[in-house]
Every structure is written in structure tokens, then in C-alpha cells.
Design a protein around this nucleic acid. Structure first.
Lengths: 142, 142
DNA sequence: TTTTATTAGGATATAATAATCCATTAAAAA
DNA sequence: TTTTTAATGGATTATTATATCCTAATAAAA
């Protein structure tokens, strides 16, 4: 994984919410159970995502969470970076101190290329697109 | 960075040693200073690398470390994995629980491809090759 | 109005990683 | 032989990430 567990949990939760029928409220505990995420920890993450406007939250009996339009339009990268900060360190895989564009280490260009591809992979599709395609796959294989 | 600081320090230290004139003994503190790595922490890492046979160590006045033939022939991936365990989590960037080859998430194939490229990038060249090429670059730019 | 269910928020605990400190061992130089 | 220098190894501390617990706020149902 490129990002930490916190980011992974956030994405799994948001993709789970994105696959639910519209307007359905889902409890934090339900997401935790379905996605196998520590319940209390997930609750914290959802709390933060509510602040960022990625989910709407409703307290009390019958309450729960649902995904917002903002989150649906956002990319995985955007959400993860919001939740946990920069995803991929820019440093080269050689870690060499002086490595730079002018003074590149032997793996500099190749790594820059891969870094871009990774960025592209997780930022070019919206959460909604990913969720929809995944739902299709699930239907085909159920 | 794909790997942790520990792995990064290990690689920087071994690439530093690989760039030194043959048979030169370099003190741990010297590497730490040149590569800007916490001295005591690096000492521990070098200690482990000595056990793994990646460096030879010499105690006492005039002592220090030098790289072994084993390390020169090894890849960055091999050394990092020895020092810190598996480098890249195999899980998909979506983190989806049920994601598998048969039941792939929408980013499955693309991620598998990138993962392979990363592996290839850090495992197809030996430490010696990387160090030599880097030395050339340094000479050109000095 | 009281009870119940659910999120919010603060405090705390645990685990992994990173970093430091100190006493010991070994080797070379004085 | 004594002193100095450097790695070794054990213990400790610090930091960050992960996880849990408890109380408050809130909303619906009884």
C-alpha cells in the first residue's frame, strides 16, 4: 500500500458508502463490520470526513452516514491526502541526499515516471466511477 | 518513499560505502555525517548489515566499515527487504476487501502492473551498478 | 417525558518505528 | 602496559500511528 491504514480505512469506508442505495443512512458500526475495520477507529475517521464534507452525519436513533456529492466527485488521492497528508514521498527510491533533477541518481527518471503513473492511477477516476465499476464486477461474480 | 526510514538509511549507507575507494574503512560516524543520518541509529543498522554480510566491520582505532562483495552484487530491494521486511504491500490501492484476481477492483490490473515496475526498478540493478552510475553523475556535475 | 440509539469529542492505551545513551569489547597507538 | 578509538550490545526514551474507552450531545421512539 502506498498510504497508511488510516487512509486505506477512509477509502474503504467511502467506497462502501458510495455503493449503497441513494439516501440510505449507514451506521459507523455497520461499515466497520462489513469492511472489517476497527469500529472505534473508523468512527474517528468518519468524524473527520464529516468535517471535510465527504460524508453527512446524522445523530441519534436511525442515524448514520451517507456520502456527499463532493466525495463522489473526488478522487481517491484527494480524499486520502485530506485524511492523512501527502501520500507518496517525492524522494527517489535510492534516497540519495543530493539527488535532484539537475543531479539525478541512476533511478531518478524511471522513478519519477512511476510516481506520475501512480498519481494518475489514483487521481484520474472519481470515487463514484470506481464504486460503480466495482459494483458491476460484484454483480457479475455474485 | 516506498520503504521506511530504516530501509532508506540502510540504502544510503550502502550506496555511500559502494562509492568509496576500495578497501577504505569508513567510520559509522563519518557516514552519518555525510549522509545526514542519526549517528546512533545508523550504528544499529550497520551492525545488522554486518550480521547479514553486507558490510565488514572492524573495531578499534582505525576501524570502520566497508562494503562486501555480496552487497555489491545485491539489489536495493534485497537489502531493504533484509533490513526491514517486505517492501510493498500487495494489496490494491482501493484497499477493497474482496479484491482479487478473480474479483478485481477497477484499479486492479493497473496497480499490479505498476507494482511490478517498481519491483523491477529496484531489483534489476545491483548496488554496484547504481553506485557507479551515480559516481559518474557526480563527477560530471562537480 | 423517559428511554434508547447513534454520532461527537476528549482522554487514554498499545504498538511500531525511530532515536538516544551508556557500558563493554576489541584493536591500534603511545 | 596504558590510553585512545571505534564497533557491539543492551537499555531506555521519543515519536507517530493505531486502537480503545468513556461521557456528552442529539434525535427518534416509547
Amino acid at each position: 500500500m502506498i498510504y497508511t491504514k488510516t487512509g486505506e480505512y477512509a477509502i474503504r469506508a467511502i467506497l462502501f458508502l458510495a455503493r449503497q442505495p441513494k439516501e440510505n443512512l449507514i451506521m459507523s458500526s455497520e461499515i466497520a463490520k462489513s469492511e472489517d475495520i476497527p469500529a472505534h477507529y473508523l468512527a474517528k475517521i468518519l468524524q473527520r470526513m464529516a468535517k471535510y464534507g465527504y460524508v453527512d452525519s446524522f445523530k441519534g436513533r436511525g442515524g448514520g452516514f451517507k456520502i456527499t456529492e463532493l466525495a463522489k466527485k473526488s478522487s481517491i488521492l484527494e480524499i486520502v491526502e485530506r485524511v492523512e497528508g501527502p501520500v507518496i514521498n517525492l524522494k527517489c527510491v535510492t534516497g540519495l541526499k543530493e539527488c535532484s533533477d539537475e543531479n539525478p541518481c541512476p533511478l531518478h527518471e524511471e522513478w519519477a515516471d512511476l510516481r506520475n503513473r501512480i498519481y494518475n492511477l489514483i487521481s484520474s477516476k472519481s470515487v463514484q466511477e470506481v464504486a460503480e465499476k466495482y459494483s458491476e464486477t460484484l454483480r457479475r461474480h455474485k
